[in-house]
Design a protein around this nucleic acid. Sequence first.
DNA 1: ATTAAGTCTATCTATTTAGTAGGGTAAAGA
DNA 2: TCTTTACCCTACTAAATAGATAGACTTAAT
Lengths: 148, 148
Amino acid sequence: MISKKTKYAINALVHLAKRKDEGPIIIAEIAKAESIPQKFLEAILLDLKKAGILASRKGKAGGYYLLKAPEDVNMADVMRLFDGPIALLPCVTYMYYERCEECKDEETCGIREVFLEVRNKTVSMLKKSTLLEIIRREGQQKNEINED
Amino acid sequence: MISKKTKYAINALVHLAKRKDEGPIIIAEIAKAESIPQKFLEAILLDLKKAGILASRKGKAGGYYLLKAPEDVNMADVMRLFDGPIALLPCVTYMYYERCEECKDEETCGIREVFLEVRNKTVSMLKKSTLLEIIRREGQQKNEINED
DNA sequence: ATTAAGTCTATCTATTTAGTAGGGTAAAGA
DNA sequence: TCTTTACCCTACTAAATAGATAGACTTAAT
């Protein structure tokens, strides 16, 4: 599961992406519209700004706005920013590699092999999941939860 | 990331799968061979037994052994047992469905659509990742971590 | 009866998550 | 200069989860 922080970040980003031509949107407005505790949202938006995804303007007519294009903001980047690595094992992360403590021989580990493939495919899917893609899919849902 | 508990469970299962024709293996032996705190492992094996994956014999010549065939034990089941749902959002889990608190309209939610697809494909991959598959892959690694 | 095993119950500590409260500073527009 | 907004900081809490450890009890083979 992703954290609420990440989910809030995604909600805020989608909100900003939909209104990207309206100029800066104030925090209070996003917080209210997306049902996010305002103080909590402040910290989230600040992190997204530091990551180069959002920009802000202070003072009157200030607020936050998307810096990147909606098609260039993907779920892998957002999840990593708030929740860390996407991989299910520390030994198959790209940026934050760590050996499994109990591991005998990483080179021949079958568990690692299997989870490495899962990681690569998951990251690839999440990279394709951009803000544009999310907005495009709104109102045209068709998929169902597989019963497995 | 999966919890250490889940990782320990997988290590223990692989150990038992490799030696499935040797009769019951005692906890202490698995704990030592796989570098798992013994008391912690006890609880894990008990859970795996309750789940119908392992069986045990008490007393002298006792221990644990695989009840299911290695090809019938998959990572999705093991992960769910110890870490809960595989889905990244509560609204796209099959067994433990919960609405996102802040969600306005689940029926048209683009975020949900995207994460639902991720979930379905992830579960499908993890279901294919059986103990047999893990053992088969040992020593024939070829995949690399994608640089993304 | 003895011994070797699994089983059950309880407790503990550290970390993380998800906030709340409340202050002050900086910048930009009117 | 006044107001509005973002920015930055500290501190605190409450609940849950992770990762164990300790000790007593039960079962089964010899």
